[in-house]
């Protein structure tokens, strides 16, 4: 499915699920999304991780709603299933689309301005460098006998200085390779929205409404 439409569909599902209290519909949605994930042949560890993520906040809200505030176990299960829909929808997006595909599609199909598309992609691509750098700042602090906790302003200060340097260098590098803001671009790989993609979107949306209306 076209990445932009996929993102739209997953966001619409998340919005609709947030504003409705339907248990059966949530469970069916979660099972469908899980099925999609399994068909992607993920590593079992990734799958297990996706299934464990919503457990703590989900169970907490569940116990609070069921045993303390309101004593409504139906709503409690609704909340837990809702959290699963969120995380499985997020995982479906991450594991079935690469960032590059998503950005290309958003630029070409959703007409996102190229500076936003590639600016964000550039930052995402240096994620490992950023993570290393944050821990390097902490290690450098420890060498001087200073522990930089996540709440210490110095840690953020130093990270922001690094961010300024990177953004400068990355923007320069991109411009040197021919990137121009606001200029028309040609695409190395054109991403089109096929009729089938629209069809999947509309059919899914109709099914979603059906699920939310028909089931409790």
């Amino acid at each position: 499915m076209n990445p932009s439409l996929k993102l739209l569909l997953l966001l619409l599902i998340s919005i609709e699920v947030s504003f409705t209290d339907r248990l059966t519909a949530n469970v069916i949605l979660a099972v469908i999304l899980l099925g999609l994930l399994v068909s992607q042949r993920l590593k079992w560890r990734q799958l297990l991780w996706a299934l464990c993520l919503p457990l703590i906040p989900g169970v907490a809200v569940m116990i609070t709603l069921g045993a303390y505030s309101g004593h409504n176990w139906f709503l409690a299960w609704v909340m837990l299933s809702r959290f699963y829909v969120y995380v499985l929808a997020g995982s479906t997006l991450i594991f079935t689309t690469t960032n590059l595909e998503l950005v290309r599609s958003l630029e070409q199909n959703a007409h996102l301005s190229s500076k936003f598309a590639y600016g964000t992609l550039a930052a995402l691509n240096i994620f490992p460098t950023i993570r290393r750098s944050v821990s390097r700042i902490q290690v450098a602090g420890q060498m001087r006998g200073v522990t930089l906790h996540w709440w210490s302003p110095t840690l953020y200060f130093k990270a922001i200085l690094a961010a300024l340097r990177w953004s400068d260098q990355l923007a320069q590098a991109m411009e040197m390779h021919g990137f121009r803001e606001g200029k028309a671009r040609t695409a190395a790989e054109t991403i089109i929205i096929r009729k089938r993609d629209w069809l999947i979107l509309f059919v899914s949306l109709v099914i979603l409404q059906g699920l939310l209306i028909a089931f409790p």
């Binding site: 500076k115 936003f116 930052a123 944050v134 400068d168």
Partner: peptide, 18 residues
């Protein structure tokens, strides 16, 4: 500008890491 957008995204990632 491109530089600002990259900067904001990197800030986002730094905070994401933390």
């Amino acid at each position: 500008h491109l530089k600002d957008i990259i900067f904001l995204a990197i800030i986002g990632i730094i905070f994401g890491v933390i």
